[in-house]
């Protein structure tokens, strides 16, 4: 009986997060109000404070924010298997929808009007990425030192053919060293 309950609980977890995956239109940030309604108000899997904590940690750990938050809530409710199941739930709709769309688009990719449409869309993507960078700048560049890190990584990213992994590792170490020096001086 207990086994069956566990299975049932995991199924509810999967299904709830799959629904949230569909409703998250546009990325992790759009997910918070939906999480509040489903996880806190309707299911009671976490309190408002816990959710805020999870969300904050989800943003400052590697990976997709929506996935990080899902894993967190899932593990709180159902342990390790809960964490895995919630994550599989949140990515499941993407897998289905994108696979279908990708198949369709590749069938029509050679039509002239589709090519023209995507050429227009690419211009829009440039602007959207640019806007995203401006928004992130306000949050991440908070003083002269972070401005230097930004410029160095930007230039390195443009002109060097190096994996972004090295910039990430280098920047994390730089952050720790800078803050340590600051503490010593104080």
């Amino acid at each position: 009986m207990k086994e069956q309950n566990k299975f049932q609980a995991l199924w509810v977890l999967f299904w709830t997060f799959a629904k949230m995956g569909v409703m998250t239109f546009g990325g992790g940030m759009a997910m918070l109000p939906i999480l509040q309604r489903e996880v806190v108000d309707s299911k009671g899997w976490a309190t408002e404070e816990e959710l805020t904590d999870y969300y904050a940690i989800g943003q400052c750990t590697p990976g997709i924010i929506a996935v990080n938050t899902a894993t967190f809530i899932g593990q709180k409710y159902g342990g390790i298997s809960g964490g895995i199941v919630a994550t599989l739930g949140v990515v499941f709709p993407s897998l289905v929808i994108i696979s279908i769309l990708a198949g369709l688009i590749s069938n029509f990719a050679d039509l002239m009007w589709v090519k023209n449409a995507f050429a227009g869309i690419q211009v829009c993507v440039c602007v959207l990425i640019f806007n995203a960078v401006v928004k992130l700048l306000k949050k991440s560049v908070v003083d002269k030192r972070t401005a230097v890190i930004f410029v160095v990584v930007l230039a390195g990213g443009v002109f060097l053919k190096v994996s972004p992994v090295w910039f990430v590792i280098g920047a994390a170490l730089t952050g720790i060293i800078l803050k340590n020096l600051e503490a010593k001086r104080a």
Binding site: I129, A132, V133, L136, L137, K139, S140, V141, T146, A147, I149, F150, V151, V152, V153, L154, A155, G156, G157, V158, P164, F167, V168, G170, A171, A172, L173, T174, G175, I176, L178, K179
Partner: peptide, 13 residues
């Protein structure tokens, strides 16, 4: 503190 501006820099690139 170091990662955030670097991540922005990479997206900027």
């Amino acid at each position: 503190y170091g990662l955030r501006p670097a991540s922005t820099g990479l997206i900027g690139a």
